[in-house]
Design a protein around this nucleic acid. Structure first.
Lengths: 226, 226
DNA sequence: ATTTGTGTAAACTTAAGGTTAACATGGAAG
DNA sequence: CTTCCATGTTAACCTTAAGTTTACACAAAT
């Protein structure tokens, strides 16, 4: 059971490094995205929500350590893997890096093969326990493992269908789901239910969440939007 | 919620290394055990079932890589963390080591502080493994060794199935276990039992504990919550 | 052989969840 | 402005999952 390809964001100001790392990890089947300074790294991380972020420490705008701290302070990136990449091989930096919340620390000059092995080792470890990944959007968290929705630190209990419906919509924020799609995804392809059934569940979700995050697209379907 | 102290097994044939590593990790609150060759490492690993094993590569009897392969081939050690410690800093060894199933690879001469950071980073990432070790949640203690549940200083006797059921749920508080999962974990994959059997056992546990800590998620399963 | 504890099954009750129908609303087209 | 149609709203109703109780089989202990 091979999941979807893992997304990796690489931030470094040296184009050479970016290229060599992208090439070698891409060859392994990972989906690679790049950033060339600290601010861009943060920006891209927020829009991509990648599985792993590889950060050079010495970068313009913001250092890798700063980026790591900023990202780790947000719930969305609590579980994201982070590897530091750096020319500073002194042990103080390394310790500081790991204590900032990084998962690994690789010294330059990097060996592409070693980096690939370390990336693989990290994913091997994390994959074995991570079954359903939770969704974080703004102050909203959807956790399929705990079957729980948290909004502004407050837990909201949704019934099964309500949860599945919200989970579906929130899995692709902004994208419109046709009523048909919703029916087949949440209710299954065979069951036939009345026309108002979806509406009623949408209503319950809206009501329980208390915030307006589901938009109606008349004649088409619904979408999640914050 | 601070768990039990993590157990670490360190295998190296140089007493100096053993001592310095033991001292530094011990200071961090880990419970340290040692072995001085490959065979002893395997033997102690089996009797201790530690959370982390640190293996020197060049050891008498069996090399660290061999020990790793042997342990990884057994289900008991599938999730156990393994770090290689070695004087061989060439990248081929490192790649081989990581691909054997190790989680990290640290070169000698080792810096105790760096090792400690890396150990901490690994445990930070993998907070989940606590099988066979007692669980403390609030005023509730579940001790699988003594087969005992203590709640508010009062011992509660649970039957085998009841105990296993509670232990499973409490091992991951908050997480929902599907009825299927419960069946396969507690009853085993092959046995087929009636639909109400789980309910009955849930009821007995709830009754005996006297506190409401098991939540029903209708249509999904059960979860432990305090 | 009898007692005791444990696990499973069956029958029944309860309640949560899901669906529907009937009606309301609101915006766009004519 | 009126009509039309898609969606919103509400409450009643139906369905199904879970809770409860009792009974019984079986094994271990006495």
């Amino acid at each position: 059971m091979e999941g979807k390809p893992k997304q990796i964001l690489i931030a470094d100001d040296e184009p050479d490094i970016l290229e060599i790392v992208s090439y070698n990890l891409g060859k392994e089947g990972y989906e690679i995205y790049t950033a060339k300074d600290g601010n861009e790294a943060i920006e891209r991380a927020k829009q991509l929500n990648p599985d792993l972020i590889i950060l050079d420490i010495m970068m313009p705008k913001k250092t890798g350590v700063e980026v790591c701290q900023i990202l780790r302070s947000q719930p969305q990136f609590q579980d994201t893997l982070i590897i530091f990449l750096t020319a500073m091989s002194d042990e103080a930096s390394q310790i500081k890096g790991l204590e900032t919340g990084a998962d690994d620390y690789v010294n330059k000059p990097i060996s592409p093969k070693v980096l690939v092995s370390r990336v693989n080792a990290l994913f091997r470890r994390v994959n074995s326990k991570e079954v359903g990944k939770s969704i974080h959007i703004g102050n909203l968290t959807i956790d399929p493992v705990k079957f729980l929705v948290v909004i502004d630190q407050k837990e909201v209990i949704l019934a099964k269908k309500e949860f599945e419906l919200l989970h579906l919509l929130a899995s692709r924020p902004g994208r419109v789901f046709l009523r048909n799609e919703i029916l087949s995804q949440v209710w299954g392809n065979d069951v036939i239910v009345g026309d108002r059934t979806i509406d009623v569940h949408i209503r319950k979700v809206r009501q329980k969440l208390g915030i307006d995050c589901i938009t109606t697209v008349k004649g088409v379907g619904y979408k999640f939007d914050m």
